[in-house]
Each structure stands twice: as C-alpha cells, then as structure tokens.
Computed example of a mutant assay.
Amino acid sequence: MSGPEDADMVEAAGAERAGGGPGREEETSRRILHVDMDAFYAQIEQRDFPDKYAGEPIAVGGNPPKGVVKAASYEARPYGVHSAQPAIEADRQCPDLIFVPPRMEVYQEESRRIRSILREYTDLIEPLSLDEAYLDVTEPKQGPPSGTLIARRIREEIYKETGLTASVGVGPSKFVAKVASDQDKPNGLTVVEPEEQLDFIAGLPIEDFHGIGPVTAEKMREMGIETGAGLQETPEKRLRRRFGKRGGHFKRLAMGEDDRPVQPDRERKSVGAERTFSDDVADPKEMLSRLEPIAGRVSGRLESAGRKGRTVTLKLKSHDHKVSTRQTTLRRAVRSSETLMRLAERLLGRPHPPEEPVRLLGLSVSSLTGGEEGGEQLELDFDRG
C-alpha cells in the first residue's frame, strides 16, 4: 500500500480477534487457503475484448475528472495506478491509460462460477468480495487433505472454466494464507507449512501486517522495528505501551497466533473505509478531497458484495484522538461513489464544518440491503446523528 495514510475497512460485525498459539495441535493442522483473483475486473475485460485491451494499461471505473478506479490491469500498475484512486490522478500518472466502464453483472456471474468450483472442495468458504475468499480445506470434500494439491487444482479449474488466473496462499492461519497469496502475483501459488510460518512471518515487512499502514509503520521504525522479526523480538508490553490493544494484536500475529475460523455464514452489517493522515487537515475543501477516494473504495466494496445501504456515517477524529460521527438514514439504499460524496459533503457541513483539524476521516454504509432495488435517490432530510 502506498500513500501517507493508514487504511482500515469496516465491513463485518463481530470481527474475530487473533488468538491461540502455534503450538496447539488443532491450529498447526489447519489448512487455510486464500484465493485471490488477479486484477479480476480488468482481467475479465482483457479476456473478453482482447483486440482492444490485451496487454494494454487499463483501468475499470469512471472517467476523469470525477471517476474512481475500481481495478487496474497489471500493465497499469507500474505507473502507480491502483484501485480506489481518483481517475484524474491515474490518468496523470499513466497518459496511455484506457478507462473501461465496469460491467458488474458480468463480474458477479464470473464470481458465481468461481464460487461453484470452490464448493467442490469445501463448504467452509468465507467470501471477502467478488474476487477473494478464504477456504478451510482441513477436511476437504474430495481428494487428499493437502492444501497444496487442492490449491493447484482450484487454480487449474478456474483457468479451465473461465480463462482467468488466480493467486493462492496456503497456510495454517488466515493471516499467513492471505499474505502468502500476495507473494507471487499474478498467477502464483505460495505454500507456508506450519513449521515454516515463524520464519515466513519474520521476513515480512511490517506493512504486510493487518492494521499497519504507512503511519503506524513509521512509528514502528522509530522503535527499530522493520520486519516481522522485529515484532517477534519486541516485548508485548512495549508494543502495548505504544499502540494499545493493537500492539498485542501485532505481537500475536508475529508469533503465528491466529486461530480465527473461516466463517461461511458471516453476515456483513456495514461496509466502510477510513484514512489516518500523516498531518492534520484543517480546510473543509481539503477534507472533501481526501474523502473522494474513501467514497470510491466504499462504493467498490458495496458493488463487490452486491449490496446497498440506507445509513451513511461520516467519522472524524481530531489530532488529540477525539472521535465524532455524523449520520443520516435515507429512504432509499445507495452505493454509488457520486451519491456517497454528495452525502459526505452535506454531512461535513452539518451543522457546521469541523471546528478542529482532523487526523482521520472515514465513511461507512450500514442498514444494508440486496443490490437489486430501484435506482438511487439522494435524500436531503438528514436524521440527527
């Protein structure tokens, strides 16, 4: 992740904390897969329209100046183009970038085809989005209980069925599997055996740990911590003094202590994103500018989940960590980034712009519904919140 901020996603109620220990037999015997499609939306467009897009830097999403990138092909990524980026910025970084309007119904259908392949091996599937899911294959429906063999078969079957590539990480925990899936993209397979996980974690840059973005990473470096090995060597008390409860979370992950189960029936109650800035933001216009990619990220996550929401919440945190929220509930569910930005602008000014500079801005959508309802309509009758 690049940029001057930390990013977190608020997407599910009752998120599990990491716990347990790597020495427990049931933990080390688990076989967890993280299946992650490679540049999913962009890859589909390149597959379906090879004469126009194959080998080209493309961005799926809205056009400049108001659009937001939803997905970027691997040809566009060396220029710094990435998802949730304002289209005008992406266009500036990559002058030859081709903007492609999204076809969500096509992506959703491909996701269903891929999900049916995954279900051939296990019912313990936890979708994170249209293109990403955890699987627990400790006791698979078919074949030997080998995470490596199942991962290979899944990748082969996905390509045979759809012509699309996937990267898969295999490990004894969600954390290790997810990080492993990103080690050899695109079209990669990385396997971390239980006895190898501490060495694997030790070699990770601290930015690879969930919850550690550039701001937290800089604080880690001030403590002399550059990698997972540094976290493993740092006493938990010292981490807690600096980062509070998060310090304990970072320490447990570094020690391979993550027994979170794969939850196939997880009910998503809210979708959101937030950014912590390296400097205070005082100008309301600058706050709106910072909210634009956040709204794009929330919109993309809602689209991936096939959901809309009626309650929109703006979160603000001042430099001295005071948190406030402004909220409205609408008659109709919404999800487009344009609508979310109009709502964010009104919430930011209601009842008046923030009086203190902010260090964090966040936007979330709750009261979720299925995404097949009627068109969006911006409501102006804000509730008190």
Rank of each mutant, 00 (worst) to 15 (best):
K178N: 04
K317G: 04
Q85I: 03
D36G: 01
E373G: 12
D381F: 15
E267V: 12
Q46V: 03
I117W: 15
D320N: 10
V271K: 07
V298M: 08
K66F: 12
D91W: 10
P22V: 09
L231E: 02
E45F: 13
T329P: 00
V323W: 10
G374T: 07
D280N: 10
E27F: 15
L149I: 05
G247C: 10
I201D: 03
R153M: 13
R112P: 00
P140Q: 09
L347I: 02
A166E: 01
P264T: 02
T234F: 15
D182F: 13
P284V: 01
T148L: 13
E195C: 09
Y79K: 14
G272R: 05
E27Y: 15
P95N: 04
K178S: 02
V271L: 15
K66L: 15
G374L: 15
L231P: 00
K315Q: 07
R307H: 04
H321S: 09
F40V: 01
G244Y: 11
A217C: 07
A42M: 09
V10S: 15
T313M: 14
E27Q: 15
R307D: 04
E126T: 02
S366V: 03
V176G: 03
V137K: 10
G163S: 05
V312Y: 08
T328K: 08
K160F: 15
R47Y: 13
L291G: 02
G224D: 05
M220Q: 04
G224R: 11
A180H: 06
R335P: 00
Y121E: 06
E292A: 14
S364K: 14
K251T: 02
G349L: 14
Q46H: 04
K174H: 09
R310Q: 11
V168L: 13
R241A: 15
D320C: 01
P86S: 03
Y79R: 14
L316H: 01
Q142A: 15
P57Q: 09
P172T: 03
E105A: 15
G67I: 00
R246Q: 13
N63Y: 15
R359A: 02
Y74H: 05
M223E: 04
K315G: 01
K308A: 06
P64G: 01
V365D: 05
F250G: 00
